[in-house]
Design a protein around this nucleic acid. Structure first.
Lengths: 120, 120
DNA sequence: GCCATTAGTTACTTTTTTGTTAGTACCATA
DNA sequence: TATGGTACTAACAAAAAAGTAACTAATGGC
């Protein structure tokens, strides 16, 4: 996100893609781990290491990056407790909760598409 | 899609991501231009160059790649007419049409999220 | 024979995204 | 004084996605 060339075609196209509400939305949810994280958090608030343990192979760096992006986009609320060792809790915002039913439908569609493709 | 290392963490994680119906679905729709193309095609069937003209800055290569991926995933039907110069028409499949209402909701959510974020 | 037209393909470069590894701060406890 | 636990950060490397530019096939009309 930081340190991009402002004039590349890549960036110019991104601007036009973000212009559309739909591609904007997918852009916001498109990180590799974001939806999986949201899925875990919709059950309950979790600490950093709890989330990490849900995904065998995610690196701490990636988890941090994805969580920060979700926070910046108003989908996740991050609460830091002034303790040692540190405790940080993550939970979904109202905005993210509204996404739930839509993602459920998308998930159903995914399952259907998958089995449809496999038939061939 | 072709020629990937089979053993990288990237690929191993992808396997586990594709395992989930939701992330699978987003994976299928996640190409930069795919949703924009679907959006145009849901109005009417179109020829290659017609689609191209809808997007000022897409390259022929990218358009080809995205269309082929959509075709492979059963979202777009490609019809080649045996004429010279060639004529090729693209149209949505039933599977893609079912996606319409879901994408509409996602688009609405995107608009809402965008204005919510801008307020700060 | 030569050109224009459509829908591509190929080889290559650029940019972004994801992953690896080692290290940090903090303080309570042994 | 050393150790452990949590939630990170920084520098770097690997992989994928996107973009650029030049080229192709086929044939009807000139």
């Amino acid at each position: 996100m930081a340190g991009r060339k402002q004039s590349s075609t890549y960036t110019r196209n991104e601007v036009c893609i973000i212009d559309c509400d739909l591609t904007y939305a997918v852009h916001k949810l498109g990180g590799r781990w974001k939806l999986l994280i949201l899925d875990k958090l919709c059950k309950r608030k979790m600490r950093f290491n709890e989330i990490k343990k849900e995904f065998s192979y995610i690196s701490e760096r990636m988890l941090t990056l994805q969580l920060r992006a979700l926070e910046e986009d108003g989908l996740v609320k991050r609460t830091v407790f002034a303790e040692v060792p540190p405790r940080v809790e993550y939970e979904l915002t109202e905005m993210a909760l509204e996404l739930g039913p839509i993602l459920k439908q998308l998930s159903d569609w995914g399952g259907k598409q998958r089995s449809f493709i496999k038939k061939d």
